[in-house]
């Protein structure tokens, strides 16, 4: 009997289907494994920390007594820090990306800058801490202040912001730029009015990822000497400070079980701050993307 080419018994096709199925299973397995590990971690932390989470925990300064201790100064310090980092790093990062992609003559210097930025993104954060200590804390005499912390962290995340923004800018179709140039627009006018708005959602994603990284970084802050025991709130950028990861680190390194649970509570607070930031970003992105449609 003559076999129809569409017949399912075609062994070659069956073999390929089987392979595709196996690959899909493998991918699904790996995905679920990652998700499960994360879930276990989250559950463990929540179980440990939830009983300490209350208003008192959020509104108290650290203390020698676990039941009196809270994250007030660390939380406020983190919020200060993140705001200052955003103010410093977003304009510089986005402007650099725009310059490299849109305005510069793509000569050798641009190439060198490009390679170096990519390299900087891979430098361990402790190294930034050392730079921050040398330049901001000692060199410029900013002491162990929020300014030193924010500038150090900004250095750390600038490469990430620049790279992400450049990628976002690259996705803007050339035809839009040409349309603008053909109307007698300069490169700057085009970049400002069309390229930047069109790449905004992508840039925002990159910025939020970078800021999230900054929020969780501990090593550079320890390096520049953020305090671990702070019983006051910073009132200005020149004040000394602590931050959530420092506070968590401090609690974890104590021997008593209660402090370990407090650390879990601190982690939950940190996660909530992170999630709030991400949710805000998704919300803004959704709104702007809708406007573009």
């Amino acid at each position: 009997m003559k076999r129809s080419p569409l017949e399912l018994s075609n062994t070659n096709i069956q073999k390929r289907h089987r392979k595709a199925r196996m690959f899909r299973l493998l991918c699904a397995g790996v995905t679920w494994l990652g998700a499960a590990l994360l879930a276990i971690l989250l559950i463990q932390i929540t179980l440990d920390g939830i009983k300490w989470l209350d208003i008192q925990f959020l509104t108290s300064f650290p203390s020698r007594f676990p039941y009196k201790a809270g994250v007030k100064s660390a939380l406020v310090g983190t919020l200060w820090l993140i705001t200052m980092i955003a103010i410093v790093s977003i304009p510089i990062g986005v402007a650099t990306a725009l310059y490299l992609e849109e305005l510069s003559h793509k000569g050798r210097i641009a190439k060198i800058v490009e390679v170096n930025i990519a390299n900087l993104a891979g430098v361990p954060s402790i190294v930034y801490g050392i730079i921050g200590l040398a330049i901001f804390v000692r060199g410029l005499g900013f002491e162990r202040s929020l300014v030193s912390g924010a500038l150090t962290m900004s250095l750390l995340i600038l490469p990430v912001i620049i790279i992400a923004s450049r990628e976002a800018i690259k996705t803007v179709p050339m035809s839009i730029r040409h349309a603008a140039y053909a109307l007698g627009a300069t490169k700057l006018q085009t970049a400002w009015a069309h390229v930047l708005p069109a790449s905004f959602p992508g840039i925002l994603t990159g910025v939020i990822l970078a800021l999230s990284r900054a929020i969780g970084e501990t090593a550079p802050l320890i390096m520049i000497g953020a305090l671990t025991y702070v019983a006051f709130l910073p009132e200005g950028p020149m004040d000394s400070f602590t931050a959530l990861p420092i506070q968590i680190f401090n609690w974890v390194s104590r021997p008593q079980q209660e402090f370990h649970e407090l650390a879990a509570g601190g982690i939950i607070v940190l996660l909530v701050v992170l999630l709030t930031m991400n949710a805000t970003a998704i919300f803004i992105r959704h709104k702007t993307e809708k406007k573009l449609q």
């Binding site: 035809s175 839009i176 040409h178 349309a179 053909a182 109307l183 007698g184 009015a193 069109a198």
Partner: peptide, 25 residues
């Protein structure tokens, strides 16, 4: 380019409103 305008082979409106497409130039 201000004096010599151009229309491209593929339509390339700005991803903005109709009004702004015209008014921006």
């Amino acid at each position: 380019r201000r004096n010599i305008g151009m229309v491209f082979q593929k339509p390339n409106p700005f991803p903005k409103t109709i009004y702004k497409n015209i008014s921006w130039g």
